[in-house]
Simulated scan of single mutants.
Amino acid sequence: MKYQINPDRSVPWNDLPDLPLNPELYRTVEIFEQLGSAKAALGKLQGRSIAIPNQGMLVNTISLQEAKASSAIENIFTTDDELYKAFSEDQNERISGPLKEILMYREALWEGFQYLNERKQFDHNYFRDIYRQVNQASDDIRPPFIHTYIRQGGTGPNAGKPIYTPPRGTGIVDAKLENLIRYLNDDVNFAADPLIKMAIAHFQFEAIHPFRDGNGRTGRIMNIHYLTHKGLLDYPILFMSRYIMDHKDDYYNGLMGVSQRGDWHTWILYMLRAIEVTANLTYDKINDVINTKDAILRAIIAETDVKRPESLVNVIFTQPLTRVRYITGQKLYSENTAKKYLNQLVSMGILERRSIQGNHYYLNSELYRILAE
C-alpha cells in the first residue's frame, strides 16, 4: 500500500490524502510494541494524577512548562524567572513579547480543554479559537490568495528554499480541515487506537497548515486535548513539548518523511515514544511535587502556629512565585497575617524572599527546582 506523497515541495499539496489512512501503512510489530509502552505510561500518569486532591496545582505548574517548551520550538524564548514573575502578576498589568505569547499558549491550553468538555467534540470553532488565542489574532483560515511556504532554515545553500507547500485554493483548506474534524470525532467509521489516531491527526493538521501562523503550537495543543477528550487524562498535564524540543530535528524530519516518502512508520513511532517519555517525566514531576508538598506541610504544622496550613501550602505550590496580594486576593488571610506567615516560611528555608523591580516576591525554590529539571 503506497501513500500519495507530495512530489514537488514548491507546489501546494492539494492532493494531500484525506483520512482515514489504510492501517497497512502503520501496522507493524514495532509500532504495536511501542503503543503498548506508551499506553502503560499514560495509564500510570492518569492513575497518579486522579489521586491528587488539588489538580489545579498541576494545571498551573505543568501547563506553564508545556507552554514554555512548545513556544521554544517556534523560537519564542524566555527564562523561568521571567515567566513565573509574569504569571504571578495581575491580569491587567502590562506583559508583552515572548512572555505574553507563552502565557497566551497556556490560556489556550486551558480554554480549549473547557471548550471540549462543554461541546463534547472538535469543530471549526475549536481550532479557530485556539489559533486566535495563541496568536493573538482575529482572522480565520488563511484565504486562498495567501502563498504559504515552509522554508529551509539555517544559513546553508538551501536556506530559504521551500521544503513544503501546504494546500491552497478556494474551499480546499476548509474541506481538508473538515475531513480532519470528522476523523477526530467519528470512532465508528474511523476506528483506530486513540494514541495512533492522535499521531495521524497531528501530522494531518500540520500538513493542512490552515492558519497564517501558530499552526505548530495549535497542533501541539490539539494533541493534549485529544487525549483528555478520549478520557486518557483528566487534565491537560502531559508535558509533550519538552520531548519535541529535545528531539526537534527528528520531529521535523518525521513530518517531512511522511510528505516526501510516505513514511508513516517513523512518524508514528516518534509520537508514541514522545507520549511514553513525557508521561513518565510528568509522572516523576508529579511525585516530586506531591512528596515535597507533603513534607513542607508537615514541617509547617510541627514548627509554626499557621492557621489553615493546607491552604497556605496549596497557594505556594500553585506557582513558584507568590506575592502577599495573591494570598489576600483569595481571602485566606489579612495582609499582615499573610506577610507574617510568608516570612515564617522564609525563616524555615521553605521560601526565598526576592525583590524584583521594586516588588516583593516569595519563591518556592523546591517547586522551581522540580519544574526546571
Results as ranks from 00 to 15, higher is better:
residue 277 V to P: 01
residue 277 V to Q: 06
residue 278 T to G: 04
residue 278 T to W: 08
residue 279 A to L: 12
residue 279 A to R: 05
residue 279 A to Y: 14
residue 280 N to M: 15
residue 281 L to P: 03
residue 281 L to Y: 07
residue 281 L to S: 08
residue 282 T to F: 12
residue 283 Y to D: 08
residue 284 D to G: 15
residue 284 D to T: 05
residue 284 D to M: 05
residue 284 D to N: 14
residue 286 I to K: 02
residue 288 D to K: 12
residue 288 D to V: 05
residue 289 V to W: 00
residue 289 V to Q: 04
residue 290 I to N: 02
residue 292 T to F: 00
residue 294 D to F: 11
residue 294 D to I: 12
residue 294 D to M: 11
residue 295 A to V: 07
residue 295 A to D: 05
residue 298 R to A: 13
residue 299 A to T: 08
residue 300 I to N: 11
residue 301 I to C: 04
residue 301 I to P: 15
residue 302 A to V: 03
residue 303 E to L: 08
residue 303 E to G: 12
residue 305 D to T: 03
residue 305 D to I: 15
residue 305 D to Q: 10
residue 306 V to T: 06
residue 306 V to S: 04
residue 307 K to R: 09
residue 309 P to A: 13
residue 310 E to P: 02
residue 310 E to Q: 10
residue 310 E to W: 06
residue 310 E to R: 13
residue 311 S to G: 08
residue 312 L to V: 09
residue 313 V to R: 12
residue 313 V to M: 06
residue 313 V to A: 08
residue 315 V to G: 00
residue 315 V to H: 13
residue 315 V to F: 03
residue 318 T to E: 03
residue 319 Q to I: 01
residue 320 P to K: 13
residue 320 P to A: 07
residue 320 P to R: 01
residue 321 L to R: 01
residue 322 T to E: 07
residue 323 R to I: 07
residue 324 V to Y: 13
residue 325 R to M: 07
residue 325 R to V: 03
residue 325 R to A: 04
residue 326 Y to F: 03
residue 327 I to D: 00
residue 328 T to H: 01
residue 329 G to W: 11
residue 330 Q to P: 02
residue 331 K to D: 10
residue 331 K to A: 12
residue 332 L to A: 15
residue 332 L to Y: 15
